[in-house]
Write a protein that binds this DNA or RNA. Sequence first.
DNA 1: AATGAATGAGCATTCATTCAT
DNA 2: AATGAATGAATGCTCATTCAT
Lengths: 192, 192, 192, 192
Amino acid sequence: MKNKKELIMKSVMSLVKENGIKGLTVSVIAKHAGIGKGTIYEYFSCKEDIFFAAMEYGISSCVKEISEKTFINQPNYKQAINNFINISYEIVKSGVFIAFTTNPKLFTFDSYKFDEIREMMTKQFEPIITVSHKINKIGIDEDIVKEPINPLTHFIFVNMILSTVMQIVHGTIKKGNETNDFLYQMALKLFN
Amino acid sequence: MKNKKELIMKSVMSLVKENGIKGLTVSVIAKHAGIGKGTIYEYFSCKEDIFFAAMEYGISSCVKEISEKTFINQPNYKQAINNFINISYEIVKSGVFIAFTTNPKLFTFDSYKFDEIREMMTKQFEPIITVSHKINKIGIDEDIVKEPINPLTHFIFVNMILSTVMQIVHGTIKKGNETNDFLYQMALKLFN
Amino acid sequence: MKNKKELIMKSVMSLVKENGIKGLTVSVIAKHAGIGKGTIYEYFSCKEDIFFAAMEYGISSCVKEISEKTFINQPNYKQAINNFINISYEIVKSGVFIAFTTNPKLFTFDSYKFDEIREMMTKQFEPIITVSHKINKIGIDEDIVKEPINPLTHFIFVNMILSTVMQIVHGTIKKGNETNDFLYQMALKLFN
Amino acid sequence: MKNKKELIMKSVMSLVKENGIKGLTVSVIAKHAGIGKGTIYEYFSCKEDIFFAAMEYGISSCVKEISEKTFINQPNYKQAINNFINISYEIVKSGVFIAFTTNPKLFTFDSYKFDEIREMMTKQFEPIITVSHKINKIGIDEDIVKEPINPLTHFIFVNMILSTVMQIVHGTIKKGNETNDFLYQMALKLFN
DNA sequence: AATGAATGAGCATTCATTCAT
DNA sequence: AATGAATGAATGCTCATTCAT
């Protein structure tokens, strides 16, 4: 059942959000998912597979949500950036989110090589780069953004937004229009 | 002995660089440090304290190295940025390094609250922001960078460099003058 | 399973009888019980709980056995006292048995306060006092023992028997009719 | 130095009185005695030797105190018994005291055989039997106690007093003249 | 397919003992 | 003689994984 696999991954995401990955045992996951411990091993071959899959699933979900909600109601350039910031904020605030730059050597995985984890992350984040493309397509249409755009710029733009959002969530950077406007100004600079 | 405490932390750093944090037992640390297991508990009260201290020490060392080597030989603005990139690259390549945006919920700590870890990281990274200030002081002196600078810009600049460097290390972004020049161009945009 | 809990406690009793409490590890208990180490922790939350429970169980069993076997075959007063002595002897000789006066501060418990241990012991020994009541009820019926009896006398009588039996087991006091008769004479004095 | 050996044993006695034998480490003993850990091993060859010696010393001290103070001020028979009870009470209340009937299998010794411990205890307690002899010598002189006395009676008398005292300390038996008088009456019965 | 009782490898931590000073 | 830093054997406890039902 794809259903039960998803149920397990959602439980993991939820539990990590609450208390972190430490002390998250298979028993706890099973209890939270409302199924038997043995059942989990029908769908995953070991604990690390569960975590890996859950991480992949979690990132993928977040990314999908950002990708979709950023463009709701046909926003203009500035609105799109605002949406991007605000939605990312909601997601990061809600709990688990791993930015580009996380060091895989600090995870509790050993059946996966570090590179596998990083590759997975890089791959899952790709749609976020597409978000940048789509946002700036709007900018181009509005004649605010100039072509051609160096592909790296998208990476830097996305990273700027997400890392700033993470600091907002942590309270290091102030949340509000001022910050959003500043990021908008920075975007204009990056893409011109 | 401050000496032995440092010895232990260096062993941890070294071992994490090689094989990651998974499977890093107190026995392994002791063996690598060439001391007895019991001795470690003379200097740290539990395993998590060792990791926390080692992380703090490791970040602090990296940051100090970047802070110093960036300004060797009185570089001009462009050279300073180049230095910043290249030194960061060497350090990130050498192993352990955690960027701003790492999610503490994914670490194997539980005696430390997530916030303690994040605070420590934030605090340790502060000198890097100072690096940005010093680099751009050079830019100002060279009339390449305009005052005043919004403080957030420094955060974004540093983050841009470090996250790009991390991708270079991972092989996702190409290493070379081209990338360095691009980052320099971006810096000029951010600070103007 | 009440079954397995009992199995564990019996193993502890048996092992303490053989070699004392020192060096009695959870592994050893598990091996002797023929179960896995982890299984023990399904039924007890820590090692001290096992010991506490085993002691309670052990004392309770001994006391129950004494209580029952003393009155087998409707003994007269003298026979009842003889039974009491002989059965106690068998039990004390068989191994674990803790008399009233043991000092709980010398046990290897720390999750239990001394008072808890003492209370448990006092409570478990209560049925022995009842044995004295029943024996002397026979004596009263035979007109050998006079009423009323000060309640303390029962305590002293029981203690006299058990401490003497313990010395017999240790070889300090000679086993035989002579000693039994002496104790009988003493009982007559105490209860008249 | 006999001085230092005694200092160590007194520390052990004092610490056991306070917190029991559990968790009583050599470090703690050294700290309490105000000497270095290594120094302890100048006087004792292992930890169990310390405990064994301290127990012997502790019992011996108690017994000596009882033996002396019972006969202060040339008491008559009843006063002597009263003294015996009251002094024993003070000593038992003060902490460590191990009665005849303690089971050596429950101690944390393994370099000593159970029999060695028991023998030591039996030997140390001997002077208490002498106390009974001396008390009853007074009784004989007063024509309250009849000769000859079966040697076992002394054992039973001493045991009666001590076990009752222990219950008084524990609060199970009421402290006061009433109890003392009762024990006196019992003594009269035992020795007649 | 689903379960959870049973397992034991694995690890953090303690502490008696040693020995260089 | 006195010390206490260093040690590592020993052990309680956890938890991923299995498997009989």
